[in-house]
């Protein structure tokens, strides 16, 4: 076990001055044949700097929570979707269907116990729940068929639910992609589409942790693609299967990883040995000391940063709550890039 203490840098677990840490990180990454920048729990500036570094290194970019984000994006791409924000749901939703067990913090912001804030009649909201599970996609399929008034054999609870859904004026379906299969999300989007023929419905996909949604946005404007991007000849390529960091590490394809975790989400999930540069806030614990560890400031706590706001569902400025003069992820990545040998 190794804990990154409040030193600027550590090489193989031993404290070192920052310039030495930067140089070691640059050397390690420059010498790699297939470097991966993973984790990506950072603010917009960190993501932008990570793109620049990846472009320079010919590296792959992936986020620790990309699986969940890509599930939502896939649902959008495959059949289209109608979505809303928690702030809107709080103001307008007279019916909320909660699928699975999403994180309680954003749910709390919906103030479900109160009537919708901008509803003229101030009728109480109806809150319905649908448990996640292996059969959810199939149950949602039946629910969709019922909502279309098709005569399928379905359990009683779904028949009741379908009737309730039809009665909403502005229904919102809440889910968290991390808990659902991509098929279930597609079913939900389809259900919302079907219900929207007669009344108003919108999905509320809750964001994954680690500023995944914000980083997806930043990678979007920087490269045109969300996560799982590789740079070849400076041009970005997106392949959600082959540029998955965890898989690349597990198969041995990746030979060096820069693990970027400015938001303190924890060390990499894999057990496999791979050469590692870690940018993490002090206090982060690693099973083994990374070859290079650099202490990084936390956006929104130590310094200002642009982060996806889960209630506004937008990238907003997060001002520091307890400013500390720690380097930002963007600073460190910029310095590593500057320290790379000239090409």
């Amino acid at each position: 076990m190794f804990e990154l203490v409040d030193a600027e840098a550590a090489l193989d677990g031993r404290p070192a001055p920052l310039p030495q840490g930067i140089a070691a990180a640059a050397a390690l990454l420059a010498g790699a044949a297939a470097p991966v920048i993973a984790g990506l729990r950072t603010d917009a500036a960190g993501a932008v700097a990570a793109v620049a570094l990846a472009r320079r290194l010919g590296a792959v970019l992936d986020h620790a929570e990309s699986e969940a984000v890509l599930r939502d994006l896939d649902a959008m791409r495959i059949g289209g979707w109608i979505v809303t924000t928690p702030a809107q749901a709080r103001a307008f939703a007279d019916l909320v269907l909660i699928v699975g067990d999403p994180a309680p913090d954003v749910l709390a912001a919906l103030a479900l116990e109160r009537p919708p804030m901008l509803d003229a009649e101030q009728r109480p909201r109806r809150v319905l729940r649908l448990a996640a599970g292996e059969t959810l996609a199939v149950r949602l399929g039946l629910l969709r068929a019922l909502a279309k008034r098709r005569e399928v054999a379905a359990p009683h609870d779904l028949v009741t639910l379908a009737e309730a859904l039809a009665g909403a004026r502005y229904g919102v379906v809440v889910w968290s992609a991390a808990q659902l299969s991509s098929l279930a999300i597609e079913m939900l989007c389809g259900l919302i589409e079907d219900l929207s023929a007669a009344t108003r419905y919108a999905g509320l996909p809750l964001p994954a942790p680690g500023n995944a949604a914000g980083v997806a946005q930043a990678l979007g404007w920087e490269t045109g693609f969300p996560f799982r991007i590789a740079f070849r000849d400076g041009m970005p390529r997106h392949d959600p299967v082959h540029y998955e960091a965890t898989r690349m590490v597990a198969s041995g394809e990746a030979d060096a990883v820069l693990w970027l975790d400015a938001l303190g989400g924890g060390p990499p999930p894999w057990r496999k040995q791979v050469r590692l540069v870690a940018l993490a806030p002090p206090g982060t614990r690693f099973a083994d000391p990374p070859e290079v560890a650099l202490a990084v400031g936390r956006p929104g706590i130590d310094h200002a940063g642009a982060l996806f706001h889960p209630v506004a569902a937008a990238v907003l400025a997060a001002l520091p709550t307890a400013p500390l003069p720690r380097p930002t992820a963007a600073d460190l990545l910029g310095r590593i890039q500057a320290a790379l040998p000239a090409c």
Partner: peptide, 8 residues
């Protein structure tokens, strides 16, 4: 015949 959740 199906899938009645989709076009069917």
């Amino acid at each position: 015949l199906g899938d009645l959740a989709a076009l069917g």
